[in-house]
Simulated scan of single mutants.
Amino acid sequence: MAHFLEKSSIPQATATLTEWNMVSDRIITARLRSQQVKVTVIQIYAPTKESDEAAKAAFYDQLQDELTTVPRHDLLLVIGDFNAQLNGDCSGFEVTMGPHGSGTRTNDNSERLRSFYASNNLCIGNTFFQHKRIHKMTWRSPGGLYKNKIDYICISKRWCLSLLDVKSRRGADVGSDHNLLVAKSRLKLMRSTPKPQRPRPFNVTKLKETPIAQQFQLELRNCFKILAETGGEESVENDWTRLHLIVIESATTTIGRRRGTYRNIKDNERCTNQSKGRSPVANHRSTRKTMSRALR
């Protein structure tokens, strides 16, 4: 009932399938991985208008449970046979649907469809594009006497502008009384600038150990000796650059950098300084409180 992939791209699409779930005989979900964004597709088959209220309520409750599990940043598509006709009256639902519906009358399924997707920030893609009536119909009765538009492609409101067109293809041989429904989309993504990584500070506490401090001094002395032998008449900027690199390489070799992120290191240093700055009386009071709690 819905078609998104060319024949040549089916193997690549199969490789991008990360998970799928057969929820019920009316709902199946799949999640695809792309280079830009992950896509969650929910294929549904809604109860007909002749079904009882309990069956309709159970279906929409189950569909709501599935929508709540979809990650917020995913491109969400809800597609399939909704068994509902929508006319061009979009009053009060301008964000959810467009003015290009094809139904002549609405029923209970139509109202459920509009209200449900409005409450879940979904857009009914078929209704936003103007086509000839013959290109809107998605279902035909046996013999072709009656034709209706009951299949829809709904997309999350965040990605609604990426839809370029939704159109029915009558010529496709799909072995069904439903026509093939095709959606074209194009993603416009914001360029993300990578944040500069702040280098971790050196573990200068190791210099308190005499062997490591002597090794660091020896490393610097050897590097300075090589620099003096190979140095020529260069500018002050070049001399400073070489000196800077020598100190960094020597420190990396001997003492290394501290573990953890820069924020964790600063937090640890702040806690250490605060604990050292406490007065002996405060420490004594804290010890007495701890002992009294233990004796209770």
Rank of each mutant, 00 (worst) to 15 (best):
G256T: 05
G232E: 00
R257W: 10
R140S: 07
S141K: 11
T261K: 05
F224D: 01
H178D: 07
G171Y: 09
L227I: 07
V182W: 12
Q214E: 13
L207V: 02
D239N: 15
E209Q: 08
S192Q: 15
T252M: 11
L181H: 04
R221I: 12
P201N: 04
E233A: 13
P201G: 04
R186M: 06
S156Y: 07
R158M: 14
F224A: 04
R158A: 15
P201K: 01
C223Y: 07
H135E: 14
C154T: 00
E233G: 12
K225V: 13
P199W: 09
R242N: 02
N203Q: 04
R200G: 02
W240R: 01
V204D: 07
R221C: 13
S168M: 02
E234C: 05
K132D: 15
G144K: 08
V182T: 11
G175I: 12
I226T: 11
P199Q: 12
S235P: 03
G171L: 03
H178W: 06
R200Y: 11
S156F: 10
N203T: 03
A172Q: 05
V174R: 11
L180H: 12
F224G: 00
H135P: 12
M190K: 15
Y146H: 13
P199I: 03
R257C: 06
H135V: 11
D239K: 15
L189A: 11
E209H: 08
K132S: 12
E209C: 05
L189N: 10
G256H: 05
